[in-house]
Design a protein around this nucleic acid. Structure first.
Lengths: 239, 239
DNA sequence: TTTGTCTATATTGGATCCAATAAATAAAAA
DNA sequence: TTTTTATTTATTGGATCCAATATAGACAAA
């Protein structure tokens, strides 16, 4: 539970995902152990774990380095996410949603509708949308009854935009964000409709296109960061 | 390189993949360390590594257990493989194959053609086909220029049939296997043709169906094993 | 015979130490 | 001044030990 080993893994993962440990930074066992106040053993195990998660790269004799993430890597991961979530939607359509799943999806869709019914959106709304969005996607993945999808998606959790829980928005242009997320939410409706009617190909196509919206946004994000502008990313950074 | 740690990981992985350590079997640090002639430290790290690879499941106070693999898990993983390799073929079609890639693919296609030109097939031929098949798929994944695909596929390497390098055949019915692999190889031709002509959707559809051939075969495999019949699986078991 | 409690055993997680290896720095030679 | 060699420092991998925790077995009571 609260053993130092698990805490070391979680802490380091959080430090990497939050940017506290920047890409390119070198980490070694002894200094890290001192910094975290533990012996080397849990740090050694944490490093290997995070290496396997794709967050660290091992140097040959000088510790580990926080992985640089390339734009091509992010772009490719969004494509992978698109096909995997598309497959999840297809398989969910081929299965029968449970009553509980239907009810929860309807509840989430209604929750989203209420956000957009106001005609505008603020950051608090977007945090709510984020949670609703995440749960909506999770249910579909669960409804696929295919553990390999969640497994394959888990490899993207550390990449900006490619994580199923990631949500990026431009805080300086909330009117545009309102329209964009409203569109995305209407895609949620369409996916649910397709799944409910057992329309696998339709569900898959919508869900793949749903991920492509993130794709174009990742490019805008890169340009804004080059221009020194800031974009806000909402995602989970916990273990 | 040949440090005990790496050897322990490789050795255990091989023992699991070969069936020497059977699904459901329990492993603990101390007896395993004794058996392999090392201290507990590399065994501890190996267990965690293999847990992250999906080969072991941790018990709460009694070591690890070799993971049981369900038929649904295999089936789902083959689906995932289909969409990922389909995406790879699509992206390869959207990129430009290098001269070297084209030449190697042509060489591999020719090699396969020669196998089938004889009008029959034996186990030695199938071993050659296996290597040719594996390399063919690898090139397409490389040509996609999308590292996330290989990354996501790597999660399936331990599952029967879902690994890109797996090739199953019924050694008691080589005439049927001849026809089946001939068909699969003609799909290779079709995929190459689609990619060469930049036909992304066509390439993706063929490749997805190509994986589905494995799908139906995995079901036949289950029935044969229940009937006590043996089916031969060619795949890589190395690290 | 069954259930509860206590004890013994098995097992893991972490700390510490030692040896091997890699990298950085200093000193010597060209 | 530059290059090569030697030395020092940093770092990792593995071994061993200790403490904590979980599990199994033995024993007593109902």
């Amino acid at each position: 539970m609260n053993k130092p080993g698990q805490q070391v893994i979680s802490r380091l993962r959080q430090m990497i995902l939050s940017g506290e440990l920047e890409a390119g930074q070198r980490l070694a066992e002894i200094p890290t152990a001192e910094q975290l106040g533990v012996s080397r053993t849990p740090v050694r195990i944490a490093f290997r774990t995070l290496e396997q998660e794709g967050l660290l790269t091992k140097l040959s004799g000088r510790g580990y380095i926080v992985r640089q993430v390339t734009q091509a890597e992010i772009s490719g991961a969004i494509e992978v996410r698109g096909v995997l979530e598309g497959l999840a939607a297809r398989q969910a359509a081929e299965n029968t949603l449970s009553k509980a799943q239907i009810n929860e999806l309807l509840q989430l869709l209604k929750q989203g509708d209420e956000l957009f019914a106001k005609g505008n959106i603020n950051e608090q709304d977007l945090a709510i949308y984020h949670d609703m969005n995440q749960r909506f996607h999770q249910i579909i993945i669960e409804a696929s009854l295919n553990p390999a999808i969640a497994e394959a998606l888990s490899r993207n959790e550390h990449l900006p935009f490619a994580s199923v829980s990631a949500l990026a928005f431009d805080r300086n242009n909330l009117a545009q964000e309102y329209r964009r997320f409203n569109f995305a939410h209407m895609q949620h409706h369409a996916v649910f409709d397709a799944i409910s009617h057992g329309q696998g190909s339709r569900a898959e196509a919508i869900m793949r296109e749903h991920a492509n919206v993130t794709h174009s946004y990742a490019k805008v994000f890169s340009q804004m960061e080059e221009n020194g502008e800031r974009m806000h990313v909402l995602k989970n950074t916990g273990s």
